[in-house]
Amino acid sequence: MHELAPLIARLQRHRARRNPLRRRLKRAAVAALLRDSRQGAEVLVVERAHRPGDPWSGDMALPGGRIEAVDEASASRAACRETAEEIGVAIDRSLGIGRLCDQLTLDHRRRRPMVISPFVYRWPRDATITTNAEIADWTWVPLAWLDEPANRGRFTWRVRGVPKSMPCYDCGDGRRIWGLTLLMLDELRRAGPGGRG
Rank of each mutant, 00 (worst) to 15 (best):
L44G: 07
D126I: 00
L4N: 11
G172D: 12
R152S: 08
E82V: 04
P55T: 07
R110Y: 15
N151A: 10
L185W: 02
R110D: 15
R18S: 14
V30F: 05
P163W: 03
N19I: 05
A41G: 03
A133I: 14
D54H: 08
T156P: 03
G58F: 05
R13I: 02
G197T: 11
V43W: 04
W140G: 06
E85F: 00
G172L: 07
A78P: 03
L143P: 06
L100G: 02
V120P: 01
R189T: 13
R110A: 14
A69N: 14
P193Y: 14
A61D: 03
I116N: 08
L62R: 05
R23E: 14
A49S: 11
R122D: 03
W56I: 01
R154I: 04
D71R: 06
T131G: 00
A29P: 02
P118T: 01
R111S: 10
A41Q: 03
E86W: 12
G179R: 05
K26H: 04
M114H: 13
D54Y: 04
E68I: 04
E72R: 14
G40S: 09
G192K: 00
A150S: 13
L188N: 10
T131E: 01
G58I: 07
E72Q: 14
G161S: 05
A49F: 02
G53E: 08
C168R: 01
C80G: 08
R15F: 00
E134T: 10
A127M: 12
M114G: 15
N19C: 12
L33V: 15
T105D: 15
P113R: 10
D107H: 07
V89L: 15
D92C: 09
G153H: 09
R48V: 09
R22C: 13
M60Y: 06
H14V: 12
A79E: 04
E3I: 00
P124A: 01
R22S: 15
D107T: 00
P193V: 13
G161F: 04
N151M: 11
M166H: 08
S117V: 10
A32L: 15
W145N: 08
R196N: 08
M184K: 09
G179S: 14
D173F: 01
L183R: 03
R176Q: 11
G40E: 10
P163C: 02
G197S: 11
A16S: 09
